[in-house]
Protein backbone atom coordinates (compact mmCIF):
# COMPACT_ATOMS: atom_id res chain seq x y z
CA UNK A 1 0.00 0.00 0.00
CA UNK A 2 1.13 3.52 -0.72
CA UNK A 3 0.46 5.81 2.19
CA UNK A 4 -1.09 9.24 1.59
CA UNK A 5 2.13 11.14 2.21
CA UNK A 6 4.03 8.87 -0.17
CA UNK A 7 1.45 9.06 -2.84
CA UNK A 8 1.47 12.86 -2.57
CA UNK A 9 5.26 12.85 -2.88
CA UNK A 10 5.01 10.50 -5.85
CA UNK A 11 2.49 12.68 -7.56
CA UNK A 12 4.83 15.63 -7.08
CA UNK A 13 7.82 13.67 -8.35
CA UNK A 14 5.95 12.65 -11.45
CA UNK A 15 4.41 15.99 -12.22
CA UNK A 16 7.42 18.22 -11.39
CA UNK A 17 9.23 17.14 -14.48
CA UNK A 18 6.07 15.75 -16.02
CA UNK A 19 6.44 16.78 -19.61
CA UNK A 20 9.97 15.47 -19.92
CA UNK A 21 9.37 12.22 -18.02
CA UNK A 22 6.31 11.32 -20.07
CA UNK A 23 8.22 12.09 -23.23
CA UNK A 24 11.11 9.86 -22.23
CA UNK A 25 8.62 7.13 -21.36
CA UNK A 26 6.95 7.28 -24.76
CA UNK A 27 10.35 7.20 -26.43
CA UNK A 28 11.51 4.17 -24.50
CA UNK A 29 8.34 2.20 -25.16
CA UNK A 30 8.42 3.16 -28.81
CA UNK A 31 11.96 1.80 -29.13
CA UNK A 32 11.09 -1.44 -27.39
CA UNK A 33 8.17 -1.94 -29.76
CA UNK A 34 10.61 -1.27 -32.60
CA UNK A 35 8.36 1.39 -34.07
CA UNK A 36 5.67 -1.12 -34.89
CA UNK A 37 3.19 1.34 -33.43
CA UNK A 38 2.66 4.90 -34.54
CA UNK A 39 4.34 7.36 -32.18
CA UNK A 40 1.30 9.59 -32.25
CA UNK A 41 -0.93 6.83 -30.98
CA UNK A 42 1.58 5.69 -28.39
CA UNK A 43 2.03 9.26 -27.23
CA UNK A 44 -1.70 9.73 -26.78
CA UNK A 45 -2.07 6.38 -25.00
CA UNK A 46 0.78 6.81 -22.54
CA UNK A 47 0.20 10.47 -21.74
CA UNK A 48 -3.37 9.69 -20.91
CA UNK A 49 -2.18 6.91 -18.65
CA UNK A 50 0.46 9.13 -17.12
CA UNK A 51 -2.03 11.85 -16.28
CA UNK A 52 -4.44 9.33 -14.83
CA UNK A 53 -1.67 7.90 -12.69
CA UNK A 54 -0.60 11.29 -11.34
CA UNK A 55 -4.20 12.22 -10.70
CA UNK A 56 -4.86 8.96 -8.83
CA UNK A 57 -1.74 9.37 -6.69
CA UNK A 58 -2.74 12.91 -5.88
CA UNK A 59 -6.06 11.64 -4.61
CA UNK A 60 -4.12 9.19 -2.46
CA UNK A 61 -4.54 5.85 -4.13
CA UNK A 62 -3.45 2.64 -2.39
CA UNK A 63 -3.01 -0.69 -4.18
CA UNK A 64 -3.86 -1.57 -7.75
CA UNK A 65 -7.42 -2.40 -6.86
CA UNK A 66 -7.99 0.87 -5.05
CA UNK A 67 -11.09 2.80 -6.09
CA UNK A 68 -8.95 5.81 -7.12
CA UNK A 69 -7.07 3.69 -9.63
CA UNK A 70 -10.14 2.67 -11.60
CA UNK A 71 -9.33 5.10 -14.40
CA UNK A 72 -5.75 3.78 -14.57
CA UNK A 73 -7.00 0.21 -14.68
CA UNK A 74 -9.44 1.00 -17.46
CA UNK A 75 -6.69 2.59 -19.55
CA UNK A 76 -4.31 -0.31 -18.89
CA UNK A 77 -6.97 -2.79 -19.88
CA UNK A 78 -7.57 -0.92 -23.11
CA UNK A 79 -3.84 -0.77 -23.88
CA UNK A 80 -3.42 -4.50 -23.14
CA UNK A 81 -6.35 -5.44 -25.31
CA UNK A 82 -5.04 -3.35 -28.19
CA UNK A 83 -1.57 -4.86 -27.91
CA UNK A 84 -3.00 -8.39 -27.84
CA UNK A 85 -5.08 -7.68 -30.93
CA UNK A 86 -2.17 -6.07 -32.75
CA UNK A 87 -0.12 -9.21 -32.16
CA UNK A 88 2.42 -7.87 -29.67
CA UNK A 89 3.90 -10.33 -27.17
CA UNK A 90 2.98 -10.26 -23.46
CA UNK A 91 6.49 -8.92 -22.77
CA UNK A 92 6.10 -6.11 -25.25
CA UNK A 93 2.81 -5.27 -23.59
CA UNK A 94 4.09 -5.20 -20.03
CA UNK A 95 7.08 -3.12 -21.05
CA UNK A 96 4.74 -0.15 -21.48
CA UNK A 97 4.40 -0.15 -17.72
CA UNK A 98 7.88 -1.24 -16.67
CA UNK A 99 9.59 1.33 -18.88
CA UNK A 100 8.31 4.05 -16.58
CA UNK A 101 10.49 2.68 -13.80
CA UNK A 102 13.59 2.97 -15.93
CA UNK A 103 12.70 6.50 -16.90
CA UNK A 104 12.40 7.51 -13.25
CA UNK A 105 15.65 5.88 -12.15
CA UNK A 106 18.15 8.57 -13.27
CA UNK A 107 16.37 11.14 -11.10
CA UNK A 108 17.11 9.03 -8.04
CA UNK A 109 20.80 9.87 -7.76
CA UNK A 110 19.96 13.41 -6.86
CA UNK A 111 16.87 12.57 -4.84
CA UNK A 112 16.46 12.63 -1.08
CA UNK A 113 16.04 9.40 0.85
CA UNK A 114 12.34 10.17 1.08
CA UNK A 115 12.26 10.38 -2.71
CA UNK A 116 14.00 7.04 -2.97
CA UNK A 117 11.52 5.53 -0.57
CA UNK A 118 8.72 6.91 -2.69
CA UNK A 119 10.35 5.55 -5.81
CA UNK A 120 10.55 2.06 -4.32
CA UNK A 121 6.86 2.20 -3.47
CA UNK A 122 6.03 3.35 -6.96
CA UNK A 123 8.21 0.61 -8.35
CA UNK A 124 6.19 -1.96 -6.45
CA UNK A 125 2.97 -0.39 -7.62
CA UNK A 126 4.16 -0.48 -11.22
CA UNK A 127 5.03 -4.16 -10.83
CA UNK A 128 1.45 -4.77 -9.81
CA UNK A 129 0.25 -2.79 -12.78
CA UNK A 130 2.54 -4.84 -15.00
CA UNK A 131 0.90 -8.03 -13.76
CA UNK A 132 -2.50 -6.49 -14.22
CA UNK A 133 -1.55 -5.76 -17.83
CA UNK A 134 -0.50 -9.35 -18.39
CA UNK A 135 -3.80 -10.61 -17.05
CA UNK A 136 -5.80 -8.31 -19.31
CA UNK A 137 -3.56 -9.31 -22.18
CA UNK A 138 -4.01 -13.05 -21.71
CA UNK A 139 -7.74 -12.66 -21.25
CA UNK A 140 -7.93 -10.96 -24.62
CA UNK A 141 -5.72 -13.62 -26.18
CA UNK A 142 -8.07 -16.28 -24.87
CA UNK A 143 -11.02 -14.48 -26.37
CA UNK A 144 -9.23 -14.22 -29.69
CA UNK A 145 -8.29 -17.89 -29.61
CA UNK A 146 -11.80 -19.11 -28.88
CA UNK A 147 -13.14 -16.87 -31.64
CA UNK A 148 -10.58 -18.41 -33.98
CA UNK A 149 -11.55 -21.90 -32.88
CA UNK A 150 -15.09 -21.10 -33.90
CA UNK A 151 -13.94 -19.84 -37.28
CA UNK A 152 -11.83 -22.95 -37.68
CA UNK A 153 -14.92 -24.97 -36.98
CA UNK A 154 -16.40 -23.47 -40.11
CA UNK A 155 -13.24 -23.55 -42.16
CA UNK A 156 -11.97 -27.00 -41.34
CA UNK A 157 -15.08 -28.70 -42.60
CA UNK A 158 -15.14 -27.93 -46.28
CA UNK A 159 -17.84 -29.43 -48.40
CA UNK A 160 -16.39 -29.77 -51.87
CA UNK A 161 -17.96 -30.63 -55.17
CA UNK A 162 -15.63 -33.29 -56.49
CA UNK A 163 -17.56 -34.24 -59.60
CA UNK A 164 -20.67 -33.27 -61.41
CA UNK A 165 -23.45 -34.37 -59.08
CA UNK A 166 -21.07 -35.53 -56.31
CA UNK A 167 -20.05 -33.63 -53.19
CA UNK A 168 -17.64 -34.80 -50.49
CA UNK A 169 -16.89 -33.86 -46.88
CA UNK A 170 -13.57 -35.05 -45.52
CA UNK A 171 -13.94 -35.02 -41.74
CA UNK A 172 -10.68 -34.44 -39.92
CA UNK A 173 -9.93 -34.34 -36.21
CA UNK A 174 -11.98 -34.64 -33.08
CA UNK A 175 -15.68 -34.49 -33.75
CA UNK A 176 -17.58 -32.84 -30.99
CA UNK A 177 -21.28 -32.52 -31.38
CA UNK A 178 -21.14 -28.84 -32.34
CA UNK A 179 -18.78 -29.54 -35.17
CA UNK A 180 -20.63 -32.59 -36.44
CA UNK A 181 -23.81 -30.56 -36.47
CA UNK A 182 -22.16 -27.78 -38.49
CA UNK A 183 -20.75 -30.20 -41.03
CA UNK A 184 -23.99 -32.03 -41.48
CA UNK A 185 -25.95 -28.82 -41.99
CA UNK A 186 -23.39 -27.67 -44.54
CA UNK A 187 -23.61 -30.98 -46.35
CA UNK A 188 -27.37 -30.81 -46.74
CA UNK A 189 -27.15 -27.21 -47.93
CA UNK A 190 -24.42 -28.10 -50.42
CA UNK A 191 -26.61 -30.84 -51.89
CA UNK A 192 -29.17 -28.16 -52.69
CA UNK A 193 -26.68 -25.52 -53.84
CA UNK A 194 -24.82 -27.81 -56.21
CA UNK A 195 -27.83 -29.85 -57.29
CA UNK A 196 -25.96 -33.03 -56.35
CA UNK A 197 -27.55 -36.38 -55.66
CA UNK A 198 -24.49 -38.08 -54.24
CA UNK A 199 -22.59 -37.16 -51.08
CA UNK A 200 -19.49 -38.81 -49.68
CA UNK A 201 -18.66 -38.46 -46.01
CA UNK A 202 -15.05 -39.47 -45.49
CA UNK A 203 -14.06 -40.17 -41.89
CA UNK A 204 -10.47 -41.31 -42.46
CA UNK A 205 -9.21 -38.41 -40.30
CA UNK A 206 -11.54 -38.99 -37.36
CA UNK A 207 -9.93 -40.61 -34.30
CA UNK A 208 -13.16 -41.77 -32.63
CA UNK A 209 -16.83 -42.14 -33.46
CA UNK A 210 -19.14 -42.25 -30.46
CA UNK A 211 -22.91 -42.74 -30.44
CA UNK A 212 -23.57 -39.04 -30.66
CA UNK A 213 -21.41 -38.55 -33.72
CA UNK A 214 -22.95 -41.69 -35.24
CA UNK A 215 -26.41 -40.34 -34.54
CA UNK A 216 -25.60 -37.07 -36.29
CA UNK A 217 -24.27 -39.05 -39.24
CA UNK A 218 -27.32 -41.28 -39.41
CA UNK A 219 -29.73 -38.37 -39.16
CA UNK A 220 -27.95 -36.52 -41.94
CA UNK A 221 -28.03 -39.55 -44.17
CA UNK A 222 -31.76 -39.97 -43.59
CA UNK A 223 -32.35 -36.25 -44.25
CA UNK A 224 -30.31 -36.47 -47.45
CA UNK A 225 -32.45 -39.40 -48.53
CA UNK A 226 -35.59 -37.39 -48.00
CA UNK A 227 -34.06 -34.86 -50.35
CA UNK A 228 -33.52 -37.57 -52.92
CA UNK A 229 -29.78 -37.85 -52.36
CA UNK A 230 -27.62 -40.79 -51.37
CA UNK A 231 -24.72 -40.70 -48.92
CA UNK A 232 -21.72 -42.98 -48.88
CA UNK A 233 -19.50 -43.19 -45.80
CA UNK A 234 -15.86 -43.88 -46.56
CA UNK A 235 -12.64 -44.31 -44.63
CA UNK A 236 -13.92 -46.31 -41.66
CA UNK A 237 -10.62 -47.57 -40.28
CA UNK A 238 -10.36 -50.97 -38.54
CA UNK A 239 -10.27 -49.59 -34.99
CA UNK A 240 -13.31 -47.43 -35.68
CA UNK A 241 -15.18 -50.31 -37.29
CA UNK A 242 -14.54 -52.55 -34.28
CA UNK A 243 -15.61 -49.83 -31.87
CA UNK A 244 -18.81 -49.14 -33.78
CA UNK A 245 -19.65 -52.85 -33.73
CA UNK A 246 -18.97 -53.13 -29.99
CA UNK A 247 -21.16 -50.10 -29.32
CA UNK A 248 -23.93 -51.83 -31.21
CA UNK A 249 -24.50 -49.07 -33.75
CA UNK A 250 -26.17 -50.31 -36.88
CA UNK A 251 -25.54 -48.60 -40.17
CA UNK A 252 -28.35 -50.57 -41.81
CA UNK A 253 -28.36 -50.25 -45.57
CA UNK A 254 -26.02 -47.25 -45.63
CA UNK A 255 -23.33 -47.70 -48.24
CA UNK A 256 -19.83 -47.75 -46.79
CA UNK A 257 -16.57 -47.93 -48.74
CA UNK A 258 -13.00 -48.45 -47.63
CA UNK A 259 -11.56 -45.40 -49.33
CA UNK A 260 -12.66 -42.09 -50.76
CA UNK A 261 -11.67 -43.36 -54.23
CA UNK A 262 -13.95 -46.40 -53.87
CA UNK A 263 -16.75 -44.16 -52.68
CA UNK A 264 -16.28 -41.85 -55.65
CA UNK A 265 -16.34 -44.77 -58.06
CA UNK A 266 -19.56 -45.96 -56.45
CA UNK A 267 -21.13 -42.49 -56.50
CA UNK A 268 -20.24 -41.96 -60.14
CA UNK A 269 -21.75 -45.29 -61.00
CA UNK A 270 -24.97 -44.13 -59.40
CA UNK A 271 -25.04 -40.81 -61.22
CA UNK A 272 -24.65 -42.61 -64.53
CA UNK A 273 -21.11 -41.49 -65.22
CA UNK A 274 -18.43 -44.12 -65.03
CA UNK A 275 -14.72 -44.21 -64.52
CA UNK A 276 -12.87 -46.25 -67.09
CA UNK A 277 -9.16 -46.75 -66.71
CA UNK A 278 -7.28 -46.25 -69.93
CA UNK A 279 -5.60 -49.41 -71.20
CA UNK A 280 -2.09 -48.02 -70.73
CA UNK A 281 -2.71 -46.90 -67.16
CA UNK A 282 -4.21 -50.09 -65.92
CA UNK A 283 -2.19 -51.71 -63.21
Amino acid sequence: MVGPDFSERLANLLSADGGRLAEAWVERVSTSLRNRMSTVELDRELRELYDALVEALRRGAGGVHDENFSEVRALLTEISRNRARQGFTPGETAVSVFALKEVLEPGLTSGSSADIGAYLRLSRLLDEFGLFTMEAYSQTREEIISAQAEQLLELSTPVVKIWDGVIAVPLVGTLDSARTQVVMEKLLQALVDTGSEQAIIDITGVPAVDTQVAQHLLKTIVAARLMGAECTVSGIRPQIAQTIVALGIEFGDIVTKASLADALRHALGRTGASVVAKAGERR
Binding site: P207, A208, V209, D210, T211, Q212, P238, Q239, I240, Q242, T243, A246, L247
Partner: peptide, 13 residues
Amino acid sequence: LVDQTKLVTAASE
Protein backbone atom coordinates in the same frame (compact mmCIF):
# COMPACT_ATOMS: atom_id res chain seq x y z
CA LEU B 1 -4.72 -48.71 -31.36
CA VAL B 2 -7.98 -50.67 -31.23
CA ASP B 3 -8.02 -50.63 -27.42
CA GLN B 4 -7.15 -46.92 -27.32
CA THR B 5 -10.06 -46.18 -29.61
CA LYS B 6 -12.42 -48.36 -27.60
CA LEU B 7 -11.43 -46.75 -24.32
CA VAL B 8 -11.58 -43.21 -25.69
CA THR B 9 -15.01 -43.89 -27.14
CA ALA B 10 -16.27 -45.37 -23.86
CA ALA B 11 -14.94 -42.31 -22.02
CA SER B 12 -16.71 -40.07 -24.49
CA GLU B 13 -20.01 -41.86 -23.83
